[in-house]
Nucleic acid binder design. Structure first.
Length: 254
DNA sequence: GGCCAGGAGGCCT
DNA sequence: AGGCCTCATGGC
């Protein structure tokens, strides 16, 4: 395998996952109902010995080639990649990803992370001390809209209720092409083009999708004439993530 | 204290 | 089709 070195920090905190915490150099999350904990030094050996984590970090995809190609595309994208090289598109759990991005609408990342944790602590399963798995759809079947408003979901509460009811759609999506998968996901209340594309990119590895949020609108307008440039193909999703992380990081630095 | 946040739905032209 | 309004909530 000739994949580029994984940029753990950027990959886990570039806004595609809300599951991870970092404390004193240790990265921790409950992935697939299992507590995963490592630091920079222990990560390579852990990954080597753990097939499930290899899938999660999308190790069968040739990121070296994709990154090299994208860096050769245009000046600006090249700069974004140079600043944070080694970002991977994670293969996250579809259910967890769908709910996370329903929560993301008109919301900020810190708060999305908080809601994610509250849902886990309230309805998930304890995994070791102080850690909880993200609740599966089955664990949420009796939850009411009022319950969800109480923990701060706000106007997204009824969307979550509908997603819980329709969670079976996630199983069907795997067999659909991108445009059919969009349509299927968007039958769920509160799921539009942005939430659908994030779910398809960050859980199903649909690299051709390019989620457009308020940041990406600004970036496309400023650098690309308002359109997704054709030369991002066939790695649009990865290009998008490099752009998003670079500009968000630049903003926070000021 | 208004403004913004990885939007979507509804209503209005 | 496209443009505004509203939807909770918290951080700044």
């Amino acid at each position: 395998m000739t994949s580029a070195k994984i940029n753990i920090e950027a990959t886990l905190f570039c806004g595609q996952s809300f599951a991870w915490t970092k404390c004193e150099g240790r990265y921790e999350a409950v992935i697939d109902r299992r507590l995963i904990s490592f630091d920079e030094a222990s990560f390579p050996a852990l990954l080597e010995s753990d097939p499930a984590l290899q899938t999660y970090f999308d190790c069968s995809f040739d990121y070296a080639a994709a990154q090299q190609y994208l860096a050769s595309c245009d000046e600006h994208l090249s700069q974004c990649i140079a600043a944070y090289p080694g970002i991977r598109i994670l293969r996250q759990d579809p259910w967890e990803t769908l709910i996370s991005f329903i929560l993301s609408q008109n919301n900020n990342i810190a708060r999305i992370r908080g809601l994610y944790r509250t849902l886990s602590e309230t309805y998930g399963t304890p995994v070791g001390k102080g850690h909880y798995s993200f609740p599966q759809a089955q664990q949420l079947l009796s939850v009411t809209e009022e319950d969800l408003r109480k923990i701060g979901a706000g106007f997204r509460a009824p969307y979550l209720i509908d997603a819980i009811k329709c969670h079976h759609i996630l199983d069907e999506v795997a067999d659909l092409d991108d445009s059919e998968a969009y349509k299927a996901l968007m039958t769920i209340a509160g799921v539009g083009i942005k939430v659908a594309s994030c779910t398809l990119l960050f859980a199903y590895g649909r690299f051709r999708l390019f989620p457009i949020d308020v940041w990406m609108k600004r970036i496309l307008g400023q650098f690309y004439g308002g359109e997704v440039p054709p030369h991002f193909a066939p790695y649009e999703g990865l290009a998008q993530q490099y752009l998003f992380h670079y500009h968000r990081s630049e903003e926070r630095r000021r």
